[in-house]
């Protein structure tokens, strides 16, 4: 039991890490990773939704009639997304403004619905929470690292939390602002994916 718990948790961190291994949830990945901070914020919001929707779907897996299961999952997910939206407005307002429309759009993030359908609907609540937490943290790490690459090259800074950079390259660096704009997002993710393939292929 403990072993499989650890397995479900850690698979999200490397073997099935979204969005690299599990190519889902690309929209927020590309859109919000202008800074590390935005990436972490988006990742944590998604993790919260993932963990709670997985828990609830798993608890109700024997109650929900199979024919309307997708509708039920969507209601559950949308509820937690709205909670995140309200809580973020109340406590981390500047971050909420930066992530904008992508917070309500967690509801259509295929990772969340995908985990509910593929994992939580077939497994116990404890395993489902471990799965949600693992995938969520993996997603957060991916967003943070993509954010780090883009922010470092595109603005010459690293911002972890609170809007002020914790690291700046210095004035000699001419920021390559292509990286923080839309086209740079695609290219950066594509190259990082290639890097992952290079390391992961045995």
């Amino acid at each position: 039991m403990a072993q499989s718990l650890a397995k479900e948790f850690t698979k999200g961190l490397w073997a099935e890490i979204p969005p690299f291994r599990l190519v889902l949830g690309l929209c927020p990945t590309l859109a919000v990773t202008k800074t590390v901070e935005n990436g972490i914020g988006m990742g944590l919001a998604t993790t919260f939704v993932l963990v709670f929707s997985n828990l609830l779907v798993s608890l109700l897996r024997n109650t929900i009639p199979p024919k309307v299961r997708i509708a039920c999952y969507i209601v559950i997910i949308a509820t937690f997304v709205t909670i995140v939206e309200l809580v973020m407005q109340a406590f981390t307002y500047p971050l909420f403004l930066k992530l904008g429309i992508f917070i309500p759009l967690i509801v259509v993030n295929c990772i969340v619905l995908g985990r509910a359908e593929a994992f939580a609907s077939k497994n116990t609540p404890v395993l489902s929470v471990a799965d949600g937490l693992g995938i969520g943290i993996g997603f957060t790490l991916s967003l943070a690292s993509l954010g780090a690459v883009r922010e470092l090259i595109g603005s010459g800074t690293i911002t972890i939390w609170g809007g002020n950079p914790v690291f700046a390259v210095g004035d000699w660096y001419q920021p390559f602002s292509f990286m923080v704009e839309a086209p740079g997002a695609f290219v950066a993710l594509g190259l990082m994916l290639a890097g992952m393939n290079l390391i992961g292929k045995k």
Binding site: T63, V68, A71, V75, T79, T82, I83, L86
Partner: peptide, 19 residues
Amino acid sequence: MIVVLTLLASVSGGLLAAV
């Protein structure tokens, strides 16, 4: 089907109103 969906929707609505 109808009972589960209605219950789920009303619990969710109530929870959101509280938050």
